[in-house]
Simulated scan of single mutants.
Amino acid sequence: MEVYGVRAGGWIAGTAVLAVLGFAPPASAADVPAPETLCTVTDPRISELSGLVSDGERWYGINDGGSKVQVFVLGRDCKVQKVISQGTDPYDVEDLARTADGKLWLADTGDNSKKRDTVALIELSTSGKATLHRLTYPDGQHDVEALIMDPRGVPYLITKDVLGDAKVYRPTGPLASPGPTPLEKVGSLNIKETDTPGGPIGSFGSVLVTGAAATADGSVIALRTYTDAYLYAVSGGDIMAALQRTPVRVPLPGEKQGEALAFEPDGTLLSGGEGVGQPIRAVKGAAALAGRSDGSSPVAGKSTAGTNGTDEDEAGDGAGLPVLPAVGVALVVVLGGWFGFSRLRRRGR
């Protein structure tokens, strides 16, 4: 059996190394190039752009949610050239990734109301053949809007958490179809609030992970919030080691509800968001900026790695939590309810 380029006998699962990964916004963000608008998405069928990838010639985009698998193939003028569709009915698709074999991977991992028994990855060929891979968490339900595929095709899921304490999960072994395959927690990210304008809920949105991307060769990965992208250089395909380094922050100001993120083969970073009439923007040469990372973690204190793969001091002094103003903390309760209510329309699988 071969799963996205990884033979079952050659799977290198590795030990679940838990670490607190620093996510403080680096001061170098001020000299990062500003994003430039390339084109505007005006097709009414793409009203909730949530995931984006590039093959160097075309872009592939997905809507948030949906009642069937549907990927829009876009030209560089933002116009739809064709639609790749399949009848599988997802629960809440949130992100899109592409592996070296050309397969598209839809992250059916949204779960704002925290009620799903399983989440799923949908493997989709450009001819429209879909394979479902169900996944289960080891510690309850999570809302996930960000997917990274490493160079071996191993998926990493990053949660969207209201206090910026995002968690990182990956499968314990090769993906089964339909599964489920168990996930393991391999780390966490502490995301600090920034003053970058944009998003649907002000500065509070700057701590919520809404998307992710990786360069075609896997040498750089990126995570995004509603307002900013964070770039990490990857050595030897080790995603978790990369996430322990201080990232380079790329502000993405003014995006109404920024969720999509992608790399072009030349290292240009693309971003976009929900809403008809929203632009696709580019930060040229962004991948090279990841080399500015100093390779250290800004989070003080001991690791939370336990010998049995569990967090030993999650109930500690809270030193790893983001420093939110009092108003921001109060908004957590109100806006958390708003997020859940706004997506009660999602149907359970």
Rank of each mutant, 00 (worst) to 15 (best):
E123C: 04
K129A: 15
P151V: 06
D150C: 11
E123L: 03
G164S: 11
V73W: 06
T131V: 15
A97V: 05
D165L: 13
E145S: 10
P155W: 03
N112P: 12
C78H: 05
L132R: 11
G87F: 14
A146P: 05
G140E: 05
V154C: 10
A120V: 01
D150E: 11
I84L: 15
D108G: 01
P90L: 03
V73D: 05
G164T: 11
G102P: 00
D161V: 10
D108M: 03
T159C: 02
H142T: 06
G110H: 08
G153N: 02
Q86S: 14
H142M: 11
D77M: 11
L121S: 01
D143P: 04
D143G: 06
G110L: 12
R98Y: 01
D111M: 12
T118P: 00
C78P: 03
K160H: 08
R98A: 12
Q81I: 04
I158P: 00
K129E: 15
T159Y: 01
I148P: 01
L157C: 00
K160M: 09
K115I: 12
L106V: 01
E94H: 09
T131S: 13
D143A: 06
G164Q: 11
K79R: 15
A100M: 06
L135W: 04
D101L: 07
G128N: 03
P155R: 01
K82M: 06
Q70T: 05
R116A: 08
K115V: 11
W105L: 15
D92I: 09
D89I: 13
F72S: 08
K79A: 13
W105R: 08
T131I: 13
K115N: 14
V154M: 15
I122T: 00
K129Q: 15
E123H: 05
Q141W: 06
Q141A: 15
G140I: 06
P151M: 05
D95N: 04
Q70N: 10
D77P: 07
I158T: 00
T118K: 04
D95R: 00
